[in-house]
Design a protein around this nucleic acid. Structure first.
Lengths: 172, 172
DNA sequence: AAGGCCATGTAACAAGTTACATGATTAA
DNA sequence: TTAATCATGTAACTTGTTACATGGCCTT
């Protein structure tokens, strides 16, 4: 009775396809590769690695300097990952505190809210620019490009929305 | 030393501005009002209500039938909510299993992936239509309209992105 | 008035975050 | 060669999810 993988664990197995890595390295790889739409922390990674080692999906190699413990995929880990990929992915989740604040804006100071929006805008502009650079720089396979395309569409949408806000508030 | 509110607790205080409500009712209200970009579950709500009652931010009324326990705002709850609104909101989080699967698509069956995308597409179309209906139906204040505008921009972006995918994969 | 359904809540668990500890490596 | 820094990991806590329990309400 093969227990299901959670998406976090699955992503680790995915990265381990490229070769063995320590927990620390996996955190870095994941942050760079999928960080903007799938966050994970060191604690999670170590926990998942330990749990997966227990289940035989990964195997820890000998402890190196600074107690680095490299993990590598096992055959059953490879199988579990393939099975996870074949399953229908769950719904996305968005948690957006700015939207929450905005929804209650009637009880807030309008200028302050707009300032919060403006502050977030900077970060979204930065991300969009970074995505575009990555997209043109090449070195991504088609699937990675498709993933990145989401980021670009998303950031464009956020920026367009932010531009709409003042007019909407003024009209209301 | 006033401890910070977390966004979930803050949203409950926000809803309680409209009058007293039980945990169950708050779950329903929140689900309808902000459910698509801020999820919360019953257990969370009861826990937060109990914790906030402890801190004096809300006050439970007499237990009614079916052990319904209505909560209402206190003055300090009102103050805590206002303070929360004034603070800069944290960054948004997106967790999108479909993107995760897509990013690793090189190890997956392309047709199956596209089928997963198509399946999600239906739900996004449904949401976009629902948002548009709500937007034109009226009854929202300007802040709620601005919130809804995000939903519309977001769903449009997701649909546009999904339309892009086959070409991106074919080109790569 | 009995059976099923529904509103309400709790408890156990899983996932995610934050703060801390420790042993290499590097630089002054 | 000692101080600073950094990679690595663990532990404690918070938040989020799932599964369960209970008692009122409704329908026939």
């Amino acid at each position: 009775m093969m227990a299901e993988l959670n998406p976090t664990a699955a992503s680790l197995l995915g990265f381990l396809h490229a070769g063995e890595a320590s927990g620390f390295e996996l955190v870095e790889i994941a942050g760079a590769f999928i960080g903007d739409f799938w966050s994970l922390t060191r604690s999670q990674v170590y926990r998942e690695l330990a749990a997966m080692a227990e289940r035989g999906l990964v195997q820890a190699g000998p402890t190196g300097p600074r107690s680095r413990r490299p993990y590598r995929l096992t055959d059953s880990g490879r199988g579990a990952f393939a099975a996870w990929l074949a399953e229908p992915p769950g719904p996305e989740q968005i948690r957006f505190p700015l939207l929450l604040a905005l929804a209650f804006g009637a009880s807030a100071d309008r200028e302050l809210l707009l300032a919060h929006v403006a502050e977030h805008r900077v970060e979204h502009e930065r991300r969009l620019a970074a995505y575009r650079t990555t997209a043109t720089a090449g070195g991504l396979d088609a699937y990675q490009q498709a993933t990145l395309a989401f980021g670009i569409r998303y950031e464009e949408a956020v920026l367009a929305w932010m531009d709409d806000i003042p007019a909407i508030l003024a009209a209301g």
